[in-house]
Nucleic acid binder design. Structure first.
Lengths: 199, 199
DNA sequence: CAAAATATTCAATATAAATTGAATAATGAG
DNA sequence: CTCATTATTCAATTTATATTGAATATTTTG
């Protein structure tokens, strides 16, 4: 009968693992890579590439590249275990950290891409808006320039947000709910607090 | 010579269009779809499917599905123009709106997916943590339950964030820079305000 | 309501992304 | 330093995604 218990636990864990893997595609990883993370998230102790390979039924090559992706974003870290020459990996368990560092990276990238384009285009739009021979071209240039300029406020804003996320200042505006040590179980006061499912 | 001016403007515009298209992949659309949005963003007036098709050099079928994606997320809206039976489309020009509604959608989805999984798994983990015959299984169940429970705080938090983004309350914490009418050009006081490029 | 114009769907194809086994490189123990 | 073990890279393949032309459906006008 305890085999049955163990099975039920396994199944429950798998449901969570699938959900986590699924929601991680929003963070720019494939479901397979999300699954690697989720398996590590529930692991009792650091796992090796081969351990993970067995759990997720992927080739070692895929696990290797998947792990690297996860390490690049800080969601997984490598740890050494003496007495074992294999590398061991653990998941960053703090979802806040994962979310925030993902967002910071994404926002900075967006800003960088658009900012570069603005730097390149604005001088010519300025020039054309003032000096183009054809008045129609001048008008168009003026309009485009206004559009481009309008995006500056947005770029400033997302950088504010990114900075607040990086520094942790964001938590002064959106405080972490006052929960107990997440590694130690119950926090019944939080249960069912939010149950509005906006489809 | 004004042909040359017009050309330069065209090129500058294309640089911006490519940058916008590129940064939109973070919002879950392909570069092609991002390009559709960007073309509409710079359009002088509402465009038809055929107009867009010509601009982006895609099939009408692709433009049709791309436009639908953009409408689903609110980044593009359909407008009617009397005297023309074709549908016309315009881009939502407010990047703040686009960003916020994307985030709200993403956060709500993440919450929903994980919440459902928790609802399904927690009863069995509770049960097993208390009642499993094998003490090892009980211990594992207790540990898994703690993990799952630890994610509740995170879910609450991202919902707070989503709500603040939806209501606009977010702007009390991260105010929009005080810029002039974005449709009307210069706001020199904002220029170069942020120039730290964190690689 | 019919006819013409436009939009959408769909099956087929092209393109891009992920996955893999085998080969190479890197690492660590002795 | 050498050998044995582990990790990574890479070219080939599989799988998934995007794109398309043709067919169907929808809409608008008279």
């Amino acid at each position: 009968m305890q085999k049955n218990d163990a099975q039920r636990l396994e199944e429950a864990r798998d449901v969570m693992i699938s959900a986590i893997a699924q929601s991680m595609v929003a963070y720019g990883v494939t479901p397979s890579v999300g699954r690697i993370y989720a398996v590590l998230y529930f692991a009792e102790s650091p796992l090796t590439l081969d351990d993970i390979k067995d759990e997720v039924a992927m080739s070692k090559a895929s696990v290797s590249t998947g792990i690297r992706e996860l390490m690049d974003t800080g969601m997984v870290v490598k740890v050494w275990k003496k007495g074992d020459r294999k590398d061991h990996y653990i998941a960053e368990k703090d979802f806040f950290k994962n979310f925030l560092s993902f967002m910071v990276k994404m926002l900075r990238l967006e800003r960088s891409v658009i900012h570069k384009a603005i730097e390149q285009t604005e001088p010519v739009m300025d020039d054309l808006a003032d000096n183009a021979k054809d008045p129609d071209v001048r008008a168009l240039a003026e309009k485009d320039r206004a559009r481009v300029n309008g995006s500056r406020a947005y770029l400033d804003w997302i950088m504010q947000l990114a900075n607040a996320m990086e520094s942790g200042e964001i938590f002064t505006h959106f405080p972490r709910p006052d929960y107990n040590d997440p590694a130690s179980g119950h926090e019944p006061q939080l249960r069912e607090r939010i149950d509005d499912e906006k489809k």
